[in-house]
């Protein structure tokens, strides 16, 4: 592999990283919002969100990406490829994250809630100061797991013509006729990305352990 090939590879890695990164951030936040809306058990909205979660979890990523990218023009919206990819990844990961948040909230201790109510905390203050800080820590392993699934599933975005870290290896080997080196390099770069996520999780957990939880 020459310098040019490495340049292409890193470009592909960057595409994978930023599209995944944006989707992860959106997905964690929107998952939290969906979980909270579902906890509020608002009629109709609750069923709607429940249906969305089942649907999003059952749809293959490639299908979802194609659907979003191709349905855009029909609805008169001109989506560029990256936006369509981010939308699809976010829709998918939000559904899984919502279930992770929801189970953490449902399992949260009733006693701590009563102590908060007894000192006159409003539900919002209780959520913000008592429940959320602890559920972030307990949900983190599952959330990071879901993040790494997203990164590993991200090659699906190549189906609408985005040249991501997997797709780019094809391009390189089409020139060099030697597919193994770029694939191995891509594998190493994926491992580096996942490693970064897991490393971040460890630091957060160590911080939590220092709090003697």
């Amino acid at each position: 592999m020459d310098g040019n090939a490495w340049g292409l590879l890193l470009q592909g890695a960057w595409t994978t990283a930023w599209i995944s990164g944006v989707s992860i951030l959106l997905g964690v936040f929107l998952g939290l919002v969906v979980a909270l809306l579902r906890l509020a058990k608002i009629p109709f909205l609750d069923q709607l969100l429940g249906a969305y979660i089942s649907l999003a979890r059952a749809t293959p990523l490639v299908t979802l990406i194609l659907f979003i990218f191709l349905s855009g023009p029909t609805l008169g919206i001109n989506l560029n490829r990256s936006t369509a990819a981010i939308m699809a990844l976010t829709l998918n990961t939000t559904a899984f994250n919502a279930e992770i948040w929801r189970s953490a909230f449902n399992n949260f201790s009733k006693e701590q809630r009563e102590a908060a109510m007894a000192v006159g905390m409003t539900p919002w203050v209780y959520f913000r100061r008592i429940m959320l800080p602890q559920t972030v820590i307990t949900s983190l392993p599952n959330l990071v797991n879901e993040m790494s699934f997203l990164v590993k599933g991200s090659p699906a975005i190549a189906v609408i013509g985005i040249v991501d870290l997997t797709r780019v290896t094809n391009r390189i080997s089409a020139v060099t006729y030697d597919p193994l080196p770029p694939i191995l390099a891509a594998g190493a770069l994926y491992m580096a990305m996942i490693g970064l996520l897991v490393w971040g999780q460890r630091i957060a957990e160590r911080k939590a352990n220092r709090l003697a939880m």
Partner: peptide, 24 residues
């Protein structure tokens, strides 16, 4: 409302059997 209820509750202190401290 939950806000009004919270306000009245500040006049009452409660101590629980299982302490119910916030571990974080």
């Amino acid at each position: 409302s939950r806000r009004e209820l919270a306000k009245v509750r500040t006049q009452l202190g409660m101590v629980f059997q299982s302490f119910n401290l916030w571990p974080h």
